[in-house]
Nucleic acid binder design. Sequence first.
RNA 1: GGGGUCAUAGCUCAGCUGGUUAGAGCGCUACGUUGACAUCGUAGAGGCCACAGGUUCAAGUCCUGUUGACCCCA
Length: 879
Amino acid sequence: MKDIAKTYNPKEFEDKIYSFWMEKGFFTPKIAPHKKPFTIVIPPPNVTGELHMGHALDNTLQDILIRWRRMQGYAALWIPGTDHASIATEIKVLDKIREETGKTKKDLTREEFLEKAWEWKDKYENRILSQLKKLGSSCDWTRTAFTMDEKRSKAVREVFVSLYEKGLIYKGNRIINWCPSCNTALSDAEVEHKEHKGHLWYIKYPVKGEEDYVVIATTRPETMLGDVAVAVHPEDERYKHLIGKTLILPLVGREIPVIADEYVDPSFGTGAVKVTPAHDPNDFEIGVRHNLPFINIMNENATINENGGKYEGLDRYEAREKIVKDLEEQGLLLKVEEHVHNVGHCYRCDTVVEPLLSEQWFVKMEPLAKPALQVVKEGKIKFVPERFEKIYTNWLENIKDWCISRQLWWGHRIPAWYCEDCGHVTVSREDPVKCEACGSTNIHQDENVLDTWFSSALWPFSTMGWPEETEDLKYFYPTDVLVTGYDIIFFWVARMIFMSLEFMKEIPFKYVLIHGLVRDALGRKMSKSLGNGIDPLEVIEKYGADTLRFTLVIGNAPGNDMRFSWEKVEHSRNFANKLWNASRYVLLNLDENDTNLYIDNLTLADKWILTRYNNIVKEVTDNLEKFELGVAASKLYDFVWSEFCDWYIELSKPVLYSDNEEAKKVTKSVLRYVLDNTLRLLHPFMPFITEEIWQNLPHEGESIMVAEWPKYREDLDFEEDAKKAEIIMEAIRAIRNIRAEANVSPSKKAKVIIAVEKEEHEKIFESGKNYIMKLAGASEVAIERNRGNIPQKAMSAAISAGLVVVPLEELIDLEEEIKRLEEEREKVLKEIERAQGLLNNENFVKKALEKVVNAEREKLEKYTAMLKNIEERLSLLNS
RNA sequence: GGGGUCAUAGCUCAGCUGGUUAGAGCGCUACGUUGACAUCGUAGAGGCCACAGGUUCAAGUCCUGUUGACCCCA
């Protein structure tokens, strides 16, 4: 007999258990040909800071899958790592330097900055990895990777050079999104569009040499400094006569043509648009089509440059005000309207981005996107839930070339060297010492670094050592499932898919399991600015990692956002405590180191719980296979609480507290068996508590985390007997209900009569007498086949197998009892009506599944019998 | 403008490919310290499953439309 603490106290064992697993090396799989691999690569958290609730969710899901497959006998590998997060980290490091020394980026050399950045990375990488451990993540730490470490950098270099050689990476002068605050170009994916209440300014552009003018409408008057044309739709009757004429650009005085282009929407504004090819992607296209000049009017910090004449030096918004004012003074401003439009913002610092003509590096997307669309269309990669497939497809179908250069220091420096003598660009796998065209040593490397997502796109294979041909790649690649949030489908998921197809000639993963955001209790996004974020470590500190994990998983459907609340945490903690105490009950009663299950003399209750358990094994496994982790957790919760604890443990008490040693042995073995296997089913969800309890139980093997995942057992399926047990349970519920209705004190025992008609029912209740006495507070249970022996002054309730009667002479209010039974009768009548209606419907009987029809017949029979019992009682009471 | 999601008990949510008397937890009411657990037990109240049509023997579940909330993309 073992005793464990009276309440669940995770602090006492979580760290100890994690160290034990580490020492045993359970997290590192053995590459074995006879085993099937199961692989997950972690979505690498940014080394910007700490883990948040979203990480806790993401990693809990991964750990559940990994632990489950490991127990099923797979060589389960979960590769951990972190991401250098170029922009985000650079901002943080610069902030820190400024706080500490007052220096800004301009005061630093690249080397000085990088030194600080690596220090930062070391510190936060460490912190993040230890947080993952606290959560219980069973990652293989021997394979920990970082997007900028040597191996990963080699992969990045290989991919860049290779794509360049194939012509899929090019350098070009294009419109990009410029963040004036981060001082770098961004990709389209890094721009967030938000609605702004702005204005639509209507401005007159005079026609040269005529009294006439054209009115254009614009949301950004300051860009007129860079206007090179006005465009109208070729079919627009209002403007046809002006096409080809020349306008005088107000304030600037430049002569610009009126051109015709299909792109113009005649219904927007006035139908005439100003064309600024250096500051708008659509205007850029028009500019190319019509061979127009590109006039850049802005500096990198979003002030007006020398091309802006007298506005030079003004910030873009100051310039806007000034220009509007000047136009107004000159009588060229026709009107101003309120206008709501979408404005792009930097996803890191929220500054309004500036579309800017700039020379940057790009990845040509069309040839890469096509196969990436194909594999999803063909079902080689499946999104869970499916609807995210559409989002993915939609994005890739409309994709433009990917701008990959960033004007930053923290990241993979672009491996391109410019020759100062001949201008040739050398792109190579090894750092060159001379220009490959002219041989000059007068070369310098491109100052820019690559988009962070360029390196994370390679993660599924770079973590396994690519471009080397490693054992890991041969055995573990492709991975099985990627678990991530819907917010990075574009940034990351799509890019991993096309990079893998291009370089591995294979998909990177078979499934993409998408989860939602963890919101606060009010449904708001957790954010620093709102201060409503909750630190997962705080939850672990207060309630334990298992509780946190369970809270994040239970009842949640894939892809849906969830709300986090402390009530939910407590609820999960209560469950852990329940499990703990149920185990305590079992442990207190086990007195030998016996791991057998004795199935020869099982009681009805034993057979019932084994049947229910067997069923749960099947269902939970099935749910996990379909990635329905939230459903699996709910089922386990219900099984442990409502079936194992509420019923089976209570049913086991009469046996365990009896003197029948043989019966006790059997029941103990069932308790142990069901608990042991239920712990295994729960282990992926709550690894620590299950290990702690399991180690205290008589068991075989070193750890529950490498114990075998339970399987359905035909020989433990006692469906018929389980039904009998349920009939007894139904009677117990009915008696309890009567007693509660009659306000019988729980301590007061009362006699119970069960009237039955069928012999089989008589037998069932006969065998359940003990249970009924113990669980329904009965002093005596009489089973009657003769209705004449049932007293009038009694309360009764019809159940499917008969009539439960509790004679409580002094407590009976006859009128109340009649009213109660009449209500019962109404309910039953309604059911009979419903079932009869169905069965009388020829079409139902003909077309519905046989199973369904039979079920209805059984129900009808059952309710008819109940009705008969109720009516008999009523007539007796009314007489 | 295009696409998507959601609308189920007071609150937070489950409900898979249509077939259970529509569920859970919290909250609420009454009773209870029965030898695992008050982080608990027993019993109970509470829902025209947003609205309107349609398909079907059968609709919370499928289709169409309406209203409302949210998200993504341009």
